[in-house]
Design a binder for these strands. Structure first.
Length: 578
RNA sequence: GCUGGGGUAGCUCAGUUUGGUUAGAGCGCCUGAUUGUGGAUCAGGAGGCCGGCGGUUCGAGCCCGCCCCUCAGUACCA
């Protein structure tokens, strides 16, 4: 027990793995993002809710959580031996709040931004503690609720000066219905959806391979496949290609023909119902470079007509998807069932098929409703794309789903996404309650925007630094400081020990404050004040290499009467900020 | 979790091939030239458990084993 030297052990200044500090530069930018979201959602009438960071484990995980289920959350036994965990999302707490407050007027509309915690592997913009911004409408089945959230998301990105965003949206009912329509076994469907979800990131080839035998990734690691049979893979490929093909075909054929013909809605509808599935197949062949398009006269005309549709993109996709279903019905009725599993009776098969059709078509109708509401809400059509390959990973989505992508930072995937989850509140109340919501990962968005310099990055909020050269005037300095602050200008006084003026200006430069207010004995004698524009000074430094010349460059600062100070500062600030 | 790259000064990295005394560079930082002016320039200075633990050796930043961290890809993601 006798240590000769009791050297205090130095503690390494480190944070936990996956956690991070936010420097003023980052935090200022982050707060800007949050305040824009907040402003926009409040303008849509959503009110703030806040809930505890710690919740009972069953609130977060449901009554029948298992061990592996807990691997990715911070869970522990707290005081009084209560099993608890840090929340890993905000929706469960919302559901608990709604279920526990019976007097709450419904629909309940709230936003919430708060930190959440997950034991994930950290990566770029991915941390174990991060801020989520959530927005939800609980207790309404109206598609207007879905459309409204999408509209608010659009507005947010406009306000953040990120106009290159797109929302892709779909409906889980369509995929669920599709699986039943083409005879994918129920237990296999989630796997299929999971693979389709990778489309945006991994591309069509990778997805097709994973539906089949699997693939090898860039590091040489093996990714196992689902080993679906060929017939199903071909059908999935046709389905997946619906949106892509419209874009590709439109682009290609427009180049060739430069078509501009007026056509009627009937023509379009006719085209979709009668020709589309065949046409899709031809396009697929062409994409696979097996052969040319090889369309008949009639089909060519129909496609040409289709390509002249100018403002009907969303409708086009819906009609494509509809015709895909019609073709399945035709085949079903003519007895070409395809692979539905051998040990099912034809009665069972018909039942599943009918269910599928019902779900699929309901999904399309709901999307069409959202489409209309988006139009009423003045959301530009090119910003919202119906893309029936959108899945969303979360298991609990039951209806429309949507994902927002920023073209400027495609590598981070979707940035503000959500959908309809009709059974989450039921965990508490036993009753189904319709709800729709969306969630943004603020920190991932921030990391991407900062790295691409798409958001301003100031190191300080200070607008003015009052330098302090002469300790005998400290009362005067503070008087001036008060005056500036009272005028609503963010100001600080130099608090360092030194009176060395060079150091003070250097400090001002390094924290990035744009204006320095200077008072020495000369100014005091004349009742004046010197105001220096540090931003302009920085520009000037680029051109001047000689020190003497640099010191003489005085047009970046003025000496004025003290009474004019506030007016001058205000003008200068508004000039700098614009 | 899996596959691969990496960990040496605040940052970016050299040094590891072939083990050998005091571990280097650039940038940044501090002090001064310059206590009434940021940049540039000049002079000086501080700053290293060479990721950790164990092993081999007279001797390890370098070789061996285990672990940790990190970057990329990928899986999972309520």
């Amino acid at each position: 027990m006798s240590k000769k030297k009791n050297k205090p052990k130095k503690i390494r200044p480190e944070v936990l793995k996956g956690f991070k500090d936010y420097s003023p530069r980052e935090e200022i930018a982050r707060q800007k993002i949050v305040s824009v979201f907040k402003e926009v959602f409040e303008s849509f009438g959503f009110s703030p809710l806040q809930t505890p960071a710690l919740e009972k484990i069953e609130v977060l995980k449901g009554a029948d959580y298992g061990e592996d289920n807990l691997a990715t959350i911070f869970n522990f036994t707290g005081p009084e031996k209560v099993e608890m965990a840090l929340r890993f999302e905000l929706t469960a707490s919302l559901a608990r709040f709604v279920a526990g407050n019976h007097e709450l007027p419904l629909p309940f509309r709230r936003y919430q931004f708060a930190p959440v915690w997950r034991v994930d592997k950290p990566g770029f913009g991915r941390y174990r503690e991060f801020t989520q911004f959530d927005i939800d409408s609980v207790g309404t089945a109206s598609m207007l609720a879905d459309a409204e959230i999408m509209a608010a998301i659009c507005k947010s990105f406009e306000k953040l000066n990120l106009p290159n965003y797109k929302i892709r949206f779909s409906n889980r009912k369509i995929l669920n219905g599709l699986a039943k329509m083409i005879g994918i076994p129920v237990e296999k469907a989630p796997d299929v959806f999971r693979v389709i979800d990778k489309l945006e990131k991994q591309g069509l080839d990778a997805v097709i391979k994973e539906l089949g035998a699997g693939r090898i990734d860039k590091s040489g690691d093996k990714i196992p496949g689902l080993n679906m049979d060929n017939e199903h893979i071909i059908l999935m490929r046709e389905y997946i290609s619906v949106y892509d093909l419209i874009v590709t075909a439109k682009h290609e054929l427009k180049k060739e023909h430069d078509i501009n013909v007026e056509i009627s809605d009937d023509d379009i509808a006719n085209f979709f119902v009668n020709y589309n599935p065949t046409a899709i197949r031809y396009f697929i062949k062409r994409e696979g470079r097996e052969e040319g398009i090889g369309l008949g006269e009639e089909q060519s005309t129909a496609i040409r007509n289709f390509l002249t549709i100018k403002k009907e993109d969303q409708l086009s996709v819906l009609r494509y998807a509809w015709s895909f279903m019609v073709e399945r019905i035709n085949k079903f009725q003519s007895g070409e069932l395809g692979n539905f599993g051998d040990n099912k009776s034809s009665e069972e098969i018909k039942c599943v098929f009918d269910e599928g059709i019902k779900e699929y078509s309901t999904g399309l109708f709901e999307l069409n409703e959202i489409r209309k509401y988006l139009e009423y809400l003045n959301v530009p059509e090119e910003k919202t794309i119906i893309d029936i390959t959108v899945v969303r990973g979360l298991g609990y989505y039951t209806g429309p789903v949507f994902e927002t992508y920023l073209d400027d930072v495609p590598e981070i995937g979707s940035v503000f996404s959500g959908g309809r989850y009709d059974s989450l509140v039921a965990r508490f109340s036993g009753k189904k309650m319709p709800a729709v919501g969306a969630s943004a990962g603020v920190d991932r968005l921030l990391a991407a925007l900062l790295s691409k310099k798409l958001i301003s990055a100031d190191n300080t909020v200070s607008e003015v630094l009052v330098t302090a050269m002469d300790s005998e005037f400290s009362g005067e300095y503070i008087k001036i400081l008060n005056e500036i602050r009272d005028a609503g200008i963010k100001a600080e006084i130099f608090l360092g020990e030194t009176r060395n003026f060079t150091k003070q200006v250097k400090y001002a430069d390094r924290i990035g404050v744009p204006i320095a207010v200077i008072l020495g004995s000369e100014e005091f004698e004349n009742g004046q004040i010197t105001i220096k524009n540090l931003i302009a000074g920085r520009e000037q430094a680029k051109e001047v290499s000689d020190r003497e010349e640099w010191l003489k460059a005085e047009n970046i600062q003025v000496t004025i009467d003290r009474k004019e100070m506030i007016d001058y500062l205000k003008k200068l600030l508004s000039k700098i900020k614009s």
